[in-house]
Design a protein around this nucleic acid. Structure first.
Lengths: 338, 338
DNA sequence: CGCATCCTCCAAAACGTTTTGGAATTGATT
DNA sequence: AATCAATTCCAAAACGTTTTGGAGGATGCG
């Protein structure tokens, strides 16, 4: 409510002096500085970031643009944990965070550039965007610094962070082959995700290393959805009863797959070993608990922010970062008995 | 990048005209308006919300102030789902949303008023704050409109939304008494939460209705934490083996309680019926799945935003809203066999 | 023709800051 | 006494918008 002018008037000095006093400049007498500080406190004055940003042409604000901020995200907490990481890092570095959420409807109203320019965000972190999203082109053309999460594309102003999806998938499948499984199917996500392609590549490589031939029919698409995965698994296991192990590209799909198997009368993990991907909370609580590949979503957000701020501050940096994954053994995988 | 001045220059009109043309005023010729629109598009112009807010003294921005935005929140998703609700409602009504997160460290640097005044938020939604938090006093003294989530306090500028905690708890416990249970214990949250007091009251009332005497030793404090609840349950059941049913003030604590019981060799739900509170995702996936009281966290956020915006727009409204809960029967409760 | 009315447009002020380029005072040095 | 340097302060411009109050021209009416 109180402006710098009010402080200046009450202190009997100019606004310039108030500004310089409060911002720690040296050309103001310590005595007047103290006086000004006291008065500012009395008046409950806090400088308007709006006005400051306007004149300084700097907002110290980054945007977290999430495509599809929906309550369904509760199941894997991807968005939430990334948000926590971004928020913590931004807080540490003194950046404000604005949350920008879009969906296909909103995208028709405002372009990516409009969204960012309006709010004068200095940089953006993009989460949840698909590879065929029209925004992605805009992002690459735009010169607003941006870090993509889980989309490995680089340009002058764009970098990315992701995890070692191929390596993670390979580890998962090798765990299954190590247990003696030969007929290993994969429930993959949708093809508009880079991570799906990478995880498929890891699956294939793991098989190849053990000289197990790749069977196209063993890979089905579960769209990262629990229900789709359940449906696809039912079809898959009916058609191919010889399958003894399943690698799912997400834990959520693994949940659906396990339910499908149970409904078909299979005993887990004896009749079917399942390994997931993500290490979501649920995976520790399901019966059987799920062996999975853990990826650190919090760190994904944190590192994205670190990278972005370095970009903003003009530091020369690698514009990408690939985080490692970790395999977590739980109850859903066991030796092949057939 | 392009400013209104650039558009004006290129269109050969004044900035006034550009402003009025773009904002749909009537005193501009349709032909010039079209021309201006085209040029604005060409230049990729979007008005600076900063400048606009400054001059209009209106930001159309609300703040979601969450105390303790931490990754641990993944387990119950309270914050996330509230956020989704707030975000959706704010989006619909044309409000910007800024996420403000605090913790005890940050609170020492900046007061509540500073936090809000700096960013010129018009109103605030407060989530995750405890009843003994120093911010709460500030909130009540401040004249920034504010909606509290799950803290039933009202003042001139402050309202709240919450759920019917007492009724919910009562329903939960009545479910247990209906199943023939007499020795029903309660694992409550910490006492700095209004919801804990309310749920305790509901527990007591349900017992009283069935003329079951209240036993102080049957109520223990699990601090809303899974581990604490596990520990307390172990102690409780050891000391009072006659207990056949448990009402937990949160699903997460119910998870801990069930684990404790299992570790003691009890078969669930035969030896112990458990009902939780919240209906978090986990509760549907645990073994046994958890009977619980569902509260709609998304709606909590959505209604909070509705209320806040009405307050901001000066509409005369009830400054509070109490949402109903719903009982969900799952596997963790069964008839008393003793 | 004279006047009122409508339609288009615009110059300038305002919002609350920071920064620039000095000005005034004081103290020290020649 | 004159000069110089250091210290402390300030007026004014700038940032990018919206709004106010009115100007100028065209049109309609008596």
């Amino acid at each position: 409510m109180a402006t710098i002018r009010d402080v200046a008037k009450k202190a009997g000095v100019s606004v310039t002096t108030v500004s310089r006093a409060l911002n720690g400049y040296s050309d103001v007498n310590e005595k007047t500085r103290e006086k000004i500080k006291v008065i500012a406190q009395e008046l409950n004055y806090s400088p308007s970031l709006l006005a400051r940003s306007l004149v300084m042409k700097k907002t110290k604000t980054i945007g977290l643009l999430v495509s599809g901020l929906r309550i369904e995200g509760s199941k894997d907490n991807f968005t939430f944990e990334v948000l926590c990481g971004v928020n913590d890092c931004a807080g540490e570095l003194g950046y404000e965070l604005v949350l920008i959420s879009t969906d296909s409807k909103k995208q028709q109203e405002k372009t990516y550039n409009q969204l960012c320019n309006e709010r004068k965000v200095e940089g953006v972190i993009l989460q949840g965007i698909k590879t065929d999203d029209p925004y992605l082109d805009e992002v690459l053309k735009s010169d607003i610094p941006c870090i993509l999460i889980d989309i490995p594309i680089e340009s002058e102003s764009v970098g990315y962070v992701t995890t070692d999806n191929k390596g993670g998938a390979q580890t998962a499948v090798e765990h299954l082959t190590d247990l003696g499984h030969k007929n290993i199917a994969m429930i993959n996500g949708h093809s508009q995700a880079f991570v799906s392609r990478e995880r498929l590549a890891g699956y294939q490589e793991a098989l190849q290393n053990k000289e197990i031939p790749f069977n196209e029919e063993y890979v089905v698409n579960g769209a990262f959805l629990e229900e789709s995965a359940e449906l696809e698994t039912t079809k898959l296991l009916s058609k191919h009863p010889e399958i003894t192990a399943l690698f799912c590209a997400s834990d959520l799909m693994a949940m659906g797959a396990m339910r499908a198997a149970k409904k078909m009368g299979k005993i887990l993990p004896k009749d079917l070993s399942v390994v997931g991907y993500d290490n979501i909370i649920l995976s520790a609580y399901s019966t059987p608990s799920l062996s999975t590949i853990a990826q650190d979503r919090y760190k994904l957000g944190f590192e994205a922010t670190t990278l972005l701020t370095k970009l903003l501050e003009g530091k020369e940096v690698e514009k990408n970062k690939v985080l490692q994954t970790a395999f977590i053994k739980r109850e859903s995988t066991t030796e092949n008995h057939r």
